[in-house]
Write a protein that binds this DNA or RNA. Structure first.
Length: 420
RNA sequence: GUGGGUGUAGCUCAGCAGGCUAGAGCACCAGAUUGUGGCUCUGGGGGUCGUGGGUUCAAGUCCCAUCAUCCACCCCA
């Protein structure tokens, strides 16, 4: 073999690809029901989009981007996430000039140079939605409810919706100061990482999984403690709307999402059955992002779900998806003289909308029958020399074994009727 | 970037404390009085034992390196 697939990438083979098609089908349906239109953006963008959009102190930008110079010496990056490109399109294609809000969804591959592990890949796929133009807390609730609705339709169980509000920039300044005041006397108890975070982004200390940091963080001011009246009111309304939908959730004041652009609502959906990478999706409000990208002040909210993780979870929970249906008909030849008639019959069947195939391996009649059975054919049409002379062929019902001679010219019609 | 586990046929794995032409099950292909499948039986093809060094009379088996993969940390989907 010349080479293998690059690390952290996957081939999705027949037998698995049906799961993806099923998931994509459910996504399309729910998006249409919730009023989202699909947008397809390029897989690569100018690097600065992510530097500015995602935030240049985030892990994604600092160590996970696939960045390279193209032949024109432009810095190009394979998209590590979907929101920034959609925001770019919203601006570039002037979607703000149309009726608001603009509700968009996307699916597709994303790229992050991480070390692969269970549920994590260098090329992975996300489904995401974005809503531009509305401040309404009901929209926050709607997108969360939509994500949970999708999971419910897929049959997933034991999920946890965690919700928090990270406030607006004004709240963050307050929080930052109060956190630094709180942790300053406890700096020695923090892990090395968190001592860095103390200056760079003290909010992240709350998110640390180290025991010592969790202990040191007990009683620390949280994002919710520092919300201004406006942000607190918004958060109350979000929760009220979630309650209206009877959606269960956990308020997690430690939930701080990794991307810089979040304001107000932040949420994450956790699953317990898929290993350490337990988040199957997350999102939040990003009221400053459009402006950061050079557009008019425009509120936005969205989420992204990890499709590999969803499929992994479905497998772990034993959820069955429809497989590829077998062929309708397999055309079997017996004798050299029958091959041209069989070939023409095959195409006649297909023109009539039946899925049909024949042997191309020069196999014996017996082997052809075996293959037909394995391929899940519902009918076999056996074109034999003797029968052909009499102008008929044998049509065999593979499930019952019943077989009858049918006038050759009438086989397509005969089978079409059988299918119904 | 850090740490640990694993790498033998297409797949799941055996291969004992280094020693004869490297095995099994499944899958694939072909047969079982020559024109009929899903069961059974028989046979067959297919392996640079991840790769490169080293130790040894002798290495799939020991040592080193490297690559890949899995899992975990970090972080995230």
């Amino acid at each position: 073999m010349l080479t293998t697939r690059p690390r952290g990438t996957n081939d999705i083979l027949p037998g698995d690809v049906e799961k993806w098609q099923y998931l994509e089908g459910q996504i399309c349906r729910i998006c249409s029901e919730y009023g989202f239109s699909e947008i397809r953006t390029p897989i690569f963008e100018h690097t600065e989009l992510f530097l500015r959009g995602v935030g240049d102190t985030t892990d994604i930008v600092e160590k996970e981007m696939y960045t390279f110079n193209d032949r024109g010496e432009r810095s190009i990056t394979l998209r590590p996430e979907g929101t920034a490109p959609v925001v770019r399109a919203y601006l570039e294609d002037r979607l703000y000039a149309g009726p608001q809000p603009v509700k968009l969804f996307y699916t597709g591959p994303m790229f992050r140079y991480d070390r692969p592990q269970s549920g994590r890949f260098r090329q992975f796929h996300q489904f995401g939605v974005e809503v531009f133009g509305s401040h309404d807390p009901a929209v926050d609730a709607e997108v969360m409810a939509m994500a949970m609705d999708l999971f419910a339709r897929l049959g997933l169980r034991n999920l946890e919706l965690r919700v928090n509000s990270v406030g607006c920039p004004a709240c963050r300044i307050v929080l930052r100061r109060r956190l630094q005041d709180f942790f300053r006397p406890r700096l020695d108890n923090l892990c090395k990482n968190c001592r860095d975070r103390f200056e760079k982004n003290p909010m992240r200390i709350l998110d640390c999984k180290e025991k010592r940091c969790k202990e040191a963080g007990a009683g620390a001011p949280t994002t919710i403690d520092c919300l201004c009246d406006g942000c607190a009111g918004h958060f109350e309304q979000v929760k009220k709307h979630l309650d209206l939908l009877n959606l269960s959730y956990i308020v997690d004041s430690c939930l701080v999402r990794g991307l810089d652009y979040y304001t107000h609502t932040a949420f994450e959906i956790m699953a317990s059955d898929i290993g350490a990478q337990s988040s199957i999706g997350g999102g939040g409000r990003y009221n400053r992002l459009v402006e950061t990208c050079g557009g008019p002040p425009t509120p936005g909210i969205g989420y992204a779900l990890g499709m590999e993780r969803i499929i992994l979870l479905m497998e772990r929970q034993g959820i069955e998806t429809p497989g590829t249906p077998g062929k309708d008909v397999f055309v079997v030849t017996a004798g050299q003289a029958t091959s041209t008639e069989a070939f023409k019959l095959l195409f006649g069947l297909r023109s009539a909308g039946l899925s049909a195939d024949k042997d191309y391996m020069n196999r014996s009649l017996k082997a052809q029958m075996k293959y037909a059975a394995k391929a899940g054919a519902r009918f076999a049409v056996i074109v034999g020399e003797e029968e052909l002379k009499q102008g008929v062929a044998l049509v065999r019902d593979m499930s019952t074994g019943a077989q009858e001679a049918v006038v050759f010219g009438g086989i397509v019609e005969y089978l079409c009727l059988k299918q119904l």
